[in-house]
């Protein structure tokens, strides 16, 4: 049960990353590699602020803001300097590695001492449930911290998902979706597709950095390497989400919900695989392979089914 709850918690933390990746990859069709850098940036900024005694909420918001800045940089490189989208992301990601080292001061910093969001949530829940550090939940013994993080993360992720759902139906949000769908059309309707893309990337990377910031606080350390492979991780969640909510063209609200559930499921699968003896070093390889399968399998299946169909009709003749 502890394994399950901790996988659930990690899944919820990464769900925010997945929502960010959903914005850049699915709404804007922009292959934004900045994520690897901005994830660690959010963690680094929050950690440094916390170590210096900053209020945890403010430190987390600081992480979010730093991610928005990173996304804006990628957007400006792509739109104003006309650099290829993939390359502008790579440039910012590479630059951020040095920035993150400067922000953290060294390659990893512990957060076991300073006050963090999960710790304050645990204290809040502790005063409600009594002082005992363990509780009985449907017959399982679980720690106060695990329940507290689960409850607050669930609320936070639902709030972010619902907030995005509402935002995408405002005038600005609808224009953003249109800009991702057809930039020529939105220009002809008097909105700057470039500004909308910059704003979208800022929002996406803000969320990705927020995810990194929360992960650092939850696992109580930040590492400059912690962003590696995050784009693929987020993409895996988005793809699982899409396969869950079905083919066709489901509404974006359903897709956002699917992305969140996809992130949790993916983390659970990884947790189970690790439990069954998977070497943690192979994790990124397996993640990449999984995304490869998820991207290509539908086409293979379609190809084989149509060729079967074709041969079947041939036989009839």
């Amino acid at each position: 049960m502890v394994l399950l709850i901790s996988a659930l918690n990690f899944g919820l933390v990464f769900a925010i990353l997945a929502i960010g990746v959903y914005i850049s990859f699915r709404i804007f069709h922009f292959p934004d590699i900045t994520a690897d850098g901005s994830f660690a940036l959010g963690a680094a900024v929050t950690t440094t602020l916390l170590v210096q005694g900053c209020n945890p909420t403010l430190a987390t918001l600081g992480g979010f803001a730093s991610g928005m800045l990173a996304g804006t940089t990628t957007g400006v490189l792509h739109t104003k300097f006309k650099i290829n989208g993939l390359l502008s992301g790579i440039l910012v990601m590479t630059a951020l590695y040095s920035v993150n080292l400067h922000v953290l001061g060294r390659s990893n910093v512990s957060l076991s001492e300073p006050q963090t969001l999960p710790k304050s949530w645990t204290q809040m829940l502790g005063t409600l449930l009594g002082d005992s550090p363990r509780h009985d939940l449907f017959g399982w013994t679980v720690g106060t911290q695990d329940i507290a993080v689960l409850l607050f993360m669930l609320c936070l992720v639902i709030a972010i998902g619902f907030g995005l759902f509402v935002f995408l139906q405002t005038n600005l949000g609808t224009a953003m979706r249109a800009a991702g769908d057809n930039p020529q059309m939105i220009r002809a309707l008097s909105a700057s597709d470039e500004r909308l893309l910059i704003f979208g990337l800022a929002l996406a990377n803000g969320l990705i950095a927020l995810s990194g910031s929360l992960l650092a606080q939850y696992q109580e350390f930040a590492d400059v390497q912690m962003g590696i492979g995050m784009v693929v991780w987020g993409l895996a969640s988005v793809i699982i989400g899409e396969s869950l909510v079905g083919s066709g063209s489901p509404k974006f609200g359903v897709l956002i919900a699917g992305t969140i559930i996809g992130s949790i499921l993916f983390r659970m699968m990884i947790a189970i695989a690790l439990r069954c003896g998977l070497n943690p070093n192979d994790l990124k390889l397996i993640t990449a392979f999984f995304v490869f399968i998820a991207l290509t399998a539908p086409k293979w299946l379609q190809a084989t089914s149509t060729s079967k169909l074709a041969s079947a009709t041939d036989e009839k003749k």
């Binding site: 139906q169 979706r177 249109a178 769908d181 309707l189 008097s190 909105a191």
Partner: peptide
């Protein structure tokens, strides 16, 4: 915009020449 509905497309067009804020 192909993935958006007819009504949403027209709603985007109804803001041509106007500001696009957080209104529904």
């Amino acid at each position: 915009a192909p993935t958006m509905s007819v009504a949403e497309n027209i709603a985007v067009a109804s803001r041509r020449g106007k500001s696009r804020g957080l209104g529904w």
